[in-house]
Each structure stands twice: as C-alpha cells, then as structure tokens.
Amino acid sequence: MSEGDSTGESIHGKPSTIGSFFTRLGQIYQSWLDKSTPFSTVRWAVTLLLTLIYMIRVYILQGWYIVTYALGIYHLNLFIAFLSPKVDPSIMDDADDGPSLPTKQNEEFRPFIRRLPEFKFWHSATKGIVIAMICTFFEAFNVPVFWPILVMYFIMLFCITMKRQIKHMIKYRYLPFTHGKRTYKDNLQSKVIL
C-alpha cells in the first residue's frame, strides 16, 4: 500500500482517521438526502428560503454581483435541462432507434423523461446557492461591476433561451409537466341505472 491510495487507508494498511471521518460524513449526508426525497414541497421551500436569505445578504452588502450572475446562469442551465427530454427528438428523427415522444394522437402514451430529474435539479440548485453564499464571505469574489448591465444581459439570455426551448417543445409536441396518461370513464359507468 502506498501513502497516496484513494481508498483512505494509511501507510500501515489501516483506515486513516481522516478518510473514515469523510466516509462517515458522506454516509450521513446521503442518508439525509434519501430521507428528504419524498418531501419535494418542503425541499423546494427550504431552497426558496435559502435563495431569499442569499438575495437579502447580497442586497445589504451591495456586492458580489458576479457571483449572483453566475448563480443565475447556473440555475438557468439547470432549468433548461429540467425542461428538456432525456432523448432529444431532433436527434431521434435522424436515427429511429429506441423510444421517442408520441407525435400523433393515436400513438402509445410514453411518459416524459427529463434530462435532469426533479431531485437532481433541486439538489444542484441548492448546492449552487450554498456555494454562492459561501463566496459572499470572501472579498476576492466581490469584483466591482456595473450590475444593471448584468441584469439586462441575464434577462436577454433568459428570454432567448426560453424562446428556443418553447419552439423546441412546440415543434416536437411535448409538455414537460404531464402527470400521467389520460383516463376516460367507461360509458357504462357514467349511465345512471334506475
């Protein structure tokens, strides 16, 4: 065994204390993530609260606009991945291998599978906010900029990106917010029997 092993073992073949600590810390973190999975509303409420705290901090300190802009771009990229299908229909037009989104009314129902699932979207967005919050404690990240230009550029980028995404949704006829297959009541069930 060498000293640089990535298994967290010391030079004597026993697990190092630091390696064991970080392994245990990772297990506790993963356990909390697993427990939070079914509570999407609570998870997003905590993320919105963190966002509000971050925005208040940036407003009070009057700085860290580049960090905020980078966080906004990162969240925009996550959101676009959340809205996009796992398999891009424009690529599937060229190669008809594998499943694709239904394009006609009488085609079989296929659920919308996202490129970025909701849980990973939430987890990445929350980590981004926490990292941005940590950056506000270091003056090195407080680069002086004229923030109205960043706001205008972000709004322009958001509009252009969403316009392209909406055109893609319309062209390939998919909605990223479907909740399952439509069911129809049987005509016999809907008649009143006297």
Rank of each mutant, 00 (worst) to 15 (best):
S36A: 10
S36V: 04
P38K: 02
F39R: 09
F39W: 08
S40G: 13
S40W: 13
S40D: 11
V42S: 13
R43V: 03
R43P: 00
R43K: 09
W44P: 01
A45K: 07
T47Q: 06
L50K: 06
T51E: 14
L52Q: 14
I53Y: 06
R57F: 02
R57D: 02
V58A: 05
Y59K: 13
G63C: 00
W64S: 07
W64K: 09
W64Y: 15
W64M: 05
V67D: 05
V67Q: 04
T68E: 14
T68N: 15
T68W: 10
T68V: 12
A70M: 12
G72E: 05
G72D: 08
I73P: 04
I73T: 10
I73D: 08
I73Y: 14
N77P: 03
L78S: 04
L78C: 07
L78W: 02
F79W: 06
F79M: 07
I80L: 06
L83V: 04
S84G: 04
P85S: 03
P85H: 12
P85M: 06
K86Q: 08
K86I: 04
K86M: 05
K86F: 00
P89N: 02
P89A: 05
P89T: 05
I91Y: 15
D93A: 05
D93R: 07
D93T: 01
D93L: 09
A95L: 15
D96C: 12
D97R: 14
D97K: 15
D97N: 12
D97M: 15
G98S: 06
G98P: 01
S100A: 10
S100C: 07
T103H: 15
T103Y: 10
K104R: 14
Q105R: 07
Q105V: 02
E108R: 10
E108K: 02
E108C: 02
F109S: 03
F109I: 03
R110E: 00
F112K: 01
I113D: 05
R115G: 00
R115Y: 02
L116I: 01
E118Q: 10
K120V: 12
W122M: 09
S124Q: 13
A125H: 12
A125G: 12
T126D: 02
V130W: 03
V130L: 14
I131D: 05
A132C: 12
M133N: 12
M133P: 02
I134R: 15
T136L: 09
F137Q: 11
F138S: 04
F138N: 11
F138D: 14
E139M: 14
A140P: 06
N142V: 07
V143P: 01
P144E: 10
V145A: 15
F146M: 09
F146I: 11
W147D: 05
W147Q: 04
W147E: 06
P148W: 00
I149H: 03
M152H: 08
M152Q: 07
Y153V: 13
F154Y: 13
I155F: 11
I155D: 01
M156L: 15
L157R: 11
F158I: 09
I160N: 05
M162A: 06
M162D: 02
R164F: 14
R164D: 15
Q165C: 01
K167P: 04
K171N: 03
Y172E: 03
Y172F: 13
R173G: 05
R173T: 07
Y174C: 01
H179N: 11
H179L: 12
H179P: 05
G180L: 01
R182F: 08
Y184S: 10
Y184H: 15
